[in-house]
Design a protein around this nucleic acid. Sequence first.
DNA 1: TATTGTTATACTCTATAACTATA
DNA 2: TATAGTTATAGAGTATAACAATA
Lengths: 156, 156
Amino acid sequence: MSTPPPTTASTTAPPPAADLAHDATDLRMATFRLARRLRAERAIDSMSDGQFAVLANLHVHGPHTLGELAERERVSAPSMNRTVNHLEELGYLTRTPDDTDRRKVNIALTDEGRSVVVETTRRRDSWLEHALEDLEPHQRETLAAAATIMRGMADR
Amino acid sequence: MSTPPPTTASTTAPPPAADLAHDATDLRMATFRLARRLRAERAIDSMSDGQFAVLANLHVHGPHTLGELAERERVSAPSMNRTVNHLEELGYLTRTPDDTDRRKVNIALTDEGRSVVVETTRRRDSWLEHALEDLEPHQRETLAAAATIMRGMADR
DNA sequence: TATTGTTATACTCTATAACTATA
DNA sequence: TATAGTTATAGAGTATAACAATA
């Protein structure tokens, strides 16, 4: 079990034994920094993170109602409505009234919206791939394992 | 444009052997989700991420000029100026003209601003600590190692 | 009456362009 | 002339409150 620590540790390599607080701080900073760096990679500069998040949600999870989108992005319904309006004007998604419940609207990606998601995603993944290429195999394995754990944490 | 690989990440886990693309996608999603979850934890609900980022920068790296802050946060100088104005009105930082170059202003945290940083940071770390507690030791070790690698990637 | 979406209103954050003060 | 900061202006994203349409 006692695998030697990835000795690439540059400056600080304290015994990680029970130092939860240190680990938490370290992971927080690392997560924020990497997320920020990744976010800078985008297909359309004029598209905000919030806009892209909506398109990405529709891409991954299929059509949503307005309320579902708002809840998923944890913003208010009016705020989401505004964002959806904008994306609709840009031609990235469509609104169609729900057949069974006329109060609802089904929001779905257009082909153009889908291509924005695909292209932006590819840019970010491409940046990440290049970064991963520069790592040693055991570091990549560490990151792959970490990704699974992190997703589990975020969903808790 | 070459045809993109079928990035339709299917639900089942593929062999991670040399699948850089898959690892990249996975790490991207995990990083964004965890960052988003962490960002929701804050000491003052009315404080935006951008505002907090400025305070955090001053806390970690000491006083900055306006231009330095704008560059560090990758926003325009007028945008940073506005944010700094607001934070100054709230009493979280101070502006003082530079002695040697009167065009510059030195922006520094007040005690109150520092406490906002400390408290928000503590909330986020606390959330993370609880999440880490629910993991197995080897998972925590993986995350600790991953944090170091991720920071290195973000700084590349 | 409850739910879903939308509009009204207001505030923050963002940008570019133009301006002031200093080097 | 160049640089640092600020102001002017405009657009996008956020929220709460109020409203309309539908269930």
